[in-house]
Simulated scan of single mutants.
Amino acid sequence: MDKRSLLQLVRPYVQVFDGPLFLIVCLILLVGSITLYSAGIDFPGRFEDHMRNIMISLFIMWLAALVPPQTMMRFAVPLYTLGVALLIGVAMFGLIRNGARRWIDLGVIIQPSEIMKIAMPMMLAWFFQKREGITRWSEFLVAGVLLVIPIGLIMRQPDLGTSLLVLAAGFYVIFFAGLSWKVLAAGVVAALASLPVAWSMLHDYQRERVMTLIDPTTDPLGKGFHIIQSTIAIGSGGIAGKGWLHGTQAHLEFIPERTTDFIFAVFSEEFGLIGNGILLLLYLLLIGRGMIIAANAPTLFTRLMAGAITMIFFTYAFVNMGMVSGILPVVGVPLPFVSYGGTAFVTLGLGVGILMSIQRHRKLMQS
């Protein structure tokens, strides 16, 4: 008969969590839940759904933390291949909603582009691991092709926000693998030179977003409404904010999508500059802890994965805060662990779980 206490029985399953990382994530979730309650008070059931999404995210995080990095490597190629195949399926017979073809019905409706947020860095990390850190230009060329294929399929849907996140995830792996600064500078110059061509390839609504960013007052009741109202909310928060549940821009329904993409405007109005500083500090701690895990990771695959996932969190936060503040175009990127949304929570929870797995198995290898 097993005479171990309940704590002794549960401890091995709880110890999969990295303490500092889990604490930081929980603090951001707490901030997000408080803000979501206020932002979604006029949406019955929204807060309850948010709590459910958090529980699902934590469960996914726990499962991912249990999986050894060596097992993740074995799934890199199949997951990437499945993701690309599903994206091709979306292009051929995907479901169209609001003018975009982003979903596919396989008995359940899924959005394959979400798979690539994790599959893309995993595939490229596997690729460089198999080449044992060789950084010849040919390896970077192949990696670039592996990155461009899903990006092209996602942009075709069109989905600029997701394509940006997948592009960033893949680029971070290539950069951390040893991409030369000279090559990077040449790429930036080439990208700037190709802007006229890229502009001509954008959809009309994407061009309108860029023009609205430059001067939202040209269409204050239409395309510029989001940016104008969100910047008013941020500015009206002042130093200490108007107080929880007292944001007028949010509760008088001037802020659109206030529980999802523009929740940062609600937070800024109610908690002000002080609240923003605390939230930024939490994100910096999250990124810092992720980078420490990446730096201490035992293999090239785990270092690249940890570094890329950490920088994905940075990209989520930077792009969301930038678009809500009016310094970046509106591209539909949620604020990590704050914005309402089930799919984003699953992706973010999986990413944190992978970081925890890398840290946990490094300790097991050392013990």
Rank of each mutant, 00 (worst) to 15 (best):
G341P: 07
D159Y: 04
G272F: 02
M116N: 07
I151E: 11
G272K: 04
W137K: 11
M305V: 13
E48A: 14
T315K: 13
R303L: 05
L195D: 09
T299C: 09
L79K: 03
R102C: 02
I232H: 13
P112E: 02
V84Y: 01
I358E: 00
D159R: 03
V173C: 01
F59K: 00
I88V: 13
A295H: 12
I309G: 01
F264H: 07
S5C: 01
M1T: 14
T343R: 12
D219C: 14
G107S: 09
A65Y: 01
V142Y: 09
L281M: 15
I56E: 12
P216T: 07
Q229S: 08
F313G: 00
I274G: 12
A185L: 14
L167T: 12
T71V: 13
M305G: 06
M92W: 11
F254V: 03
I104R: 06
P220T: 03
L66G: 15
N320A: 05
I327V: 15
G349Q: 01
Y172E: 04
Y172R: 07
Y205Q: 08
G277P: 07
A250V: 06
I234N: 02
L21W: 01
V330D: 01
F127K: 09
K130N: 11
G243H: 10
E132C: 13
P334R: 08
G83C: 07
A119R: 11
S230Y: 06
Y205E: 05
H361V: 05
T248E: 09
L335A: 06
G237C: 04
T218P: 13
L164N: 01
I24R: 07
G45C: 07
R209Q: 03
Y316Q: 00
G133L: 09
P158W: 02
I174C: 12
S57Q: 04
T71D: 08
F171H: 01
V31E: 00
R101N: 03
G342C: 07
M55W: 14
A39P: 09
A168Y: 14
G241K: 04
V90T: 04
L79P: 03
F314D: 02
T315I: 14
Q359A: 12
L141S: 15
M356Q: 14
T299N: 08
S194L: 15
E48I: 15
I214S: 09
E270Y: 00
L124T: 04
D159A: 05
H361S: 09
F271Q: 09
Q157E: 14
F267C: 05
L167N: 04
R207F: 04
A100Q: 09
L27V: 15
S325N: 06
A85M: 13
L23N: 10
I287P: 03
L147K: 08
L213K: 00
V145E: 08
I104F: 06
I109K: 15
M211F: 13
S194K: 12
V324W: 01
A85S: 15
I354Y: 02
D159G: 05
M116D: 07
V142I: 13
S236T: 11
T299M: 06
T260V: 03
P150R: 09
K242G: 11
R74T: 06
T248D: 10
G307W: 05
K242N: 15
G83E: 09
K363V: 10
A119P: 02
P220Y: 03
I292T: 10
L192Y: 02
I293C: 02
M155L: 15
L279H: 02
M291N: 14
V331C: 05
A64D: 08
I151G: 07
A240T: 15
